[in-house]
Design a protein around this nucleic acid. Structure first.
Lengths: 203, 203
DNA sequence: AAGGTAAGCTACATCTGTGTAGCTAATCAA
DNA sequence: TTGATTAGCTACACAGATGTAGCTTACCTT
């Protein structure tokens, strides 16, 4: 009858991409618990029936969307600038965390129903190039080059930056400023690998 | 007819307490997004109508429950044991975070719909004795006594412990072991206040 | 040009939660 | 003991999501 939607009909990849985008937007807006096939369909402008042909519930759509996300950009240690590389790594992490995909991952991790459904495979895929691995990549690079003792690069130390950025994101709800990131690097990470304030009364 | 529920009828404080407990259990089990008046009522064994007499939606019940939570136990710095007191403070924090109230707060902070409803007042009340304040209390105590330079106790430094415990809780989903906590104190907090590894090539 | 695939559309029965209303009866305070 | 308060109970109309079915039709392949 009309040409309102007869114009183009999306198929395959294109349609799936639209649905993936839709579910990520939807979860950021309403939260994991309020995800519905209806809502996703509406946002992607596709009927629910199309969704049911591929997935059996909203969380599966979400997990699938995350699985197909582009991997996060990796921090590439540059010249000989440990401090600058650490700050850049944390900025990368903060940007990712604020993206729809990052927010979706945060939502899933704290949702009781979906947390258990995160398969090992997905967890690996989503976190492999991320995890707590933004600053680790950088730290490993400089430890390998002998800029600080490799034995100081423990799991705890590799987590310091990511943990503090995460806390800041939760507490402030806003992206950390350049000063915030610098403070984290100067006051927390560098001291842990030996570049810290001198012990006032060392043993 | 029967005496099945004619036995006792809860009122006032007692009833409200039961409802508060119910909503906290409920949110831990299903998540903020799936909270319903129905579910809360069922768990508290009270009809929905009773809930509507006091609150207008599930999130209000939840926020009210959090508002009336007992404040968290405060870390009490003991003898002259900075390291031990820090570990104890982090253990307190981990215990709180794993309690129903702690999990509920985590759920709320990551829920798009309810995050905006957290009033300043509630935020203060729930976080005042907590926030990022478990280790801060201890650190302040020892800084005041001159055990380390007070200017090293920055906001970032005060957050290190809580941030790392939080990350561990999220990543592992399990309570941190005594070794985990000790590692956090030794490898992250103490270096930041001057008790760290010596800089290998200090300037 | 013809056929197969898959998306769009509509409809339906079902289920669960919502918010309101009005009644009954237990508990508390005077 | 009496009266006020308020919890427990039932019922209802409504809204929204669910999962399925069957049809139409655009798009891709050959």
């Amino acid at each position: 009858m009309s040409d309102r939607n007869a114009r183009t009909r999306r198929r395959g990849e294109e349609l799936i991409k639209a649905i993936h985008d839709a579910v990520l937007e939807e979860v950021v807006e309403v939260g994991v618990g309020r995800l519905t096939m209806d809502g996703i369909g509406r946002r992607a402008a596709t009927p629910r029936t199309t969704l049911y042909r591929r997935w059996s519930d909203p969380i599966e759509v979400l997990l699938d969307a995350l699985y197909h996300q582009h991997p996060v950009e990796e921090p590439a240690p540059g010249a000989d600038d440990l401090r600058g590389d650490l700050i850049r790594a944390l900025r990368l992490m903060a940007e990712w965390a604020l993206s729809p995909a990052g927010r979706a991952v945060a939502a899933i991790l704290t949702d009781p129903k979906s947390a258990g459904l995160m398969s090992e495979a997905l967890f690996e895929r989503v976190f492999a190039n991320r995890g707590g691995t933004f600053t680790r990549t950088v730290l490993q690079h400089y430890a390998d080059r002998g800029r600080f003792p490799a034995e100081l690069l423990t799991p705890v130390v590799a987590d310091i930056g990511e943990a503090l950025v995460t806390k800041r994101l939760i507490d402030a709800g806003a992206p950390p400023t350049a000063e915030d990131l610098a403070a984290i690097v100067d006051q927390a990470i560098l001291p842990a690998i030996g570049f810290g304030p001198r012990a006032p009364q060392a043993s």
